[in-house]
């Protein structure tokens, strides 16, 4: 549990935050550039200011950074250039005192697939490789509260989803709490259970990530991303696709390995979904999900439809013309064809 009261005058506004984070595994902080996100993180970790901060009901504001039990990975965090990749990891494990997790170097190297990079000079790493090594080093500091400032911005989406899944698994396995700052709602929605929205130094929204993210999307006149949880049934070697079953449902999808290997959740953009009231022919062999229309809202002259797929949510967008001609009503059973999965 984290409780903090911060007040700090910044250049254009005051950072004025009263925040209480109860049970969470990964909390996201979302906000535009210059909204005070990084300063908030620096205050929690002790790099800036002496503000009122309690972690697990213990006051930590009087403690220096190395005694707070918090690791902060600052934005564009550098690796130590006099050591190679393996040296950077070993250095952290050796010299960081009061390690609270028994996460071993080998576990981190395996989880983040760093084996091929170990002997490399840190100056020769690409942006994405560097961010993975920096994250590994942060994990090896061994603290139970880890704060990350734009940690994976240089990774492409498939790899980013994969690392975020690894992070979720580590959070669950080693009871590590993460606070992650990103300007990408897609990234935060994928991995966070709690979301905090900052604007001009103030928390304007806080809660379960699905709800906060939807509110932000609606506010920005955008359609939310859909995330579906699934179980893998089998891999069809003949066609090179996975057969997935939607969690707590009998419905199946056929998905290419790329989308599955990123782990955990299937990310579906609203543009990938087409809906119909009539059941398509051979729908059991195509990526069509039966769902129920739970709400429809106008967003910027289009209609955003919220669909329930056996307990999970899909968002799709219809133009006003199609909406008017289709006569859909809340409660109707609809068929959502999902494209570009195979």
């Amino acid at each position: 549990m984290i409780k903090l009261t911060l007040f700090k005058a910044l250049n254009n506004f005051n950072l004025d935050i009263n925040l209480q984070l109860e049970s969470f595994n990964i909390a996201g902080v979302f906000g535009p550039s210059g909204s005070g996100k990084s300063t908030l993180l620096r205050c929690i970790s002790g790099l800036e200011g002496k503000q009122s901060i309690y972690i697990n009901n213990q006051p930590v504001h009087h403690l220096p950074s190395d005694k707070r039990g918090v690791t902060l990975q600052v934005q564009s965090c550098p690796l130590f250039p006099h050591l190679d990749v393996a040296g950077n990891l070993a250095f952290t494990q050796k010299h960081c005192a009061n390690r609270q997790t028994d996460l071993s170097e080998q576990e981190v190297i395996t989880a983040l697939e760093l084996q091929p990079l170990l002997k490399r000079n840190v100056q020769s790493l690409s942006g994405g490789e560097r961010q993975r090594v920096v994250f590994a080093r942060t994990l090896l500091a061994g603290q139970k509260l880890i704060i990350l400032d734009e940690p994976f911005s240089a990774l492409d989406w498939p790899l980013r989803f994969k690392i975020l899944t690894t992070m979720s698994n580590l959070a669950a396995k080693f009871n590590i709490k993460f606070i992650i700052v990103s300007h990408s709602l897609k990234e935060l929605l994928f991995c966070c259970d709690t979301l905090i929205q900052l604007e001009k130094g103030k928390v304007i929204n806080q809660g379960p990530s699905g709800l906060v993210a939807k509110a932000i999307y609606v506010n920005n006149k955008q359609t939310p991303l859909s995330l579906l949880n699934y179980d893998i049934i089998k891999f069809d070697e003949k066609y090179g696709v996975y057969h997935l079953q939607i969690k707590q449902s009998e419905q199946q999808l056929f998905v290419s390995p790329n989308a599955v290997e990123q782990g955990g959740k299937l990310v579906i953009e609203s543009e990938q979904i087409a809906i119909s009231a009539i059941k398509p022919i051979h729908s059991e062999n195509t990526n069509v999900l039966v769902c129920i229309l739970t709400s429809a809202e106008v967003i910027d002259s289009n209609w955003q439809l919220t669909l329930n797929v056996d307990g999970q949510t899909l968002y799709c967008l219809l133009s006003a013309r199609v909406w008017d001609q289709s006569n859909y009503n809340v409660g109707d059973t609809l068929y959502a064809a999902i494209h570009n999965l195979e």
Binding site: L47, D66, R68, L72, P81, F91, T92, H95, A97, R137
Partner: peptide, 23 residues
């Protein structure tokens, strides 16, 4: 580098001896 090491939670002494002096 020093700020990155502080954020990692290295003590003042360790930062000076094992990071700053070698750098």
């Amino acid at each position: 580098y020093n700020e990155a090491a502080i954020a990692l939670g290295l003590s003042h002494y360790k930062r000076f001896v094992y990071l700053i002096l070698p750098l």
